[in-house]
Write a protein that binds this DNA or RNA. Structure first.
Lengths: 152, 152
DNA sequence: TATTGTTATACTCTATAACTATA
DNA sequence: TATAGTTATAGAGTATAACAATA
């Protein structure tokens, strides 16, 4: 059996050589590490992402948040309810279009956000410790080539 | 406001600059594309990964398969049952240790595997179309730096 | 005592469909 | 008709705990 074959599969077809599989494993590890670092905040990756984006785009519409995060509004609704109940966001009525909700962080969430961002930075530092600064920049660029829509 | 800031967050802390977030988005896109390509085979990423590894390591123990795929045996058990019912794998008794199951592909699965691997290659080709050959190799290396245990 | 494998169960994420209100 | 948002529900992935059989 040649070196270019992994048992029964050509090396290029081996599971370990598949980028999709390695994306899933790396993502699972990152998810896990995130929940360890953020446990005390009761924020999950999705809820943190929502807060971070609302922080970066005050007044963003719920539908726009769905689009930006690649979520269905049916799945977003209960999460917005959760964040509102916890006093982290406000759903404000749009002036002209009564269908629209404008999302904003509460003062309490605004105050907490810098510390949460620092925690996330520590989490990234930990699960990326084997990558150099340059490698991290490269990885970021390549990941965005995969999923970011060219049209945007 | 300086160019180095994304609204309220320093650029390095912006959601879009987080590798964990981008891993999750890229992985979700890959998952989605996988299920489109593999729909007619009724194989999901997990079940395909199990078959591919059993193909690459005939006779692998169930516990070893769990370890290699990062799964809990409690979650593996029903999937092995599914694959056995579909006539794709056999769970053979170990000669010396009666607790152990040795996993093998059936003849029918062995015959189908090359076509399934080709379909997965097409899927990878599609969701990675914006990455060059070199970039794909780099991405693979960086992803494995994140999740593959140094001890192995 | 530890390991292999199973069952039961709960939680999160995601997908679809049906719905209300508004444009 | 189309869009914004909600509710209900089902499927898949993953986590823990309790268990039986074997080492």
């Amino acid at each position: 059996m040649s070196e270019t074959r992994v048992r029964n599969a050509a090396a290029e077809d081996a599971l370990d050589a598949q980028i999709g599989y390695n994306l899933r494993r790396a993502s699972a590890l990152a998810l896990n590490d995130f929940s360890v670092e953020m446990a005390e905040t009761s924020l999950r990756p999705v809820t943190y992402a929502m807060l971070a984006l609302i922080d970066e785009r005050p007044g963003v519409r719920a539908a726009e948040l769905c689009r930006l995060l690649g979520m269905k509004s049916a799945n977003m609704a209960p999460l917005l309810g959760e964040l509102e109940e916890r006093g982290l966001i406000a759903r404000d009525d749009h002036a002209e279009d009564k269908r629209v909700q404008e999302l904003n962080l509460t003062e309490s969430a605004k105050a907490a956000m810098p510390a949460w961002r620092r925690k996330v930075r520590r989490h990234e530092e930990r699960f990326l410790q084997r990558l150099s600064r340059n490698e991290r920049a490269t990885l970021l660029r390549l990941l965005r080539l995969i999923w970011v829509d060219e049209a945007e």
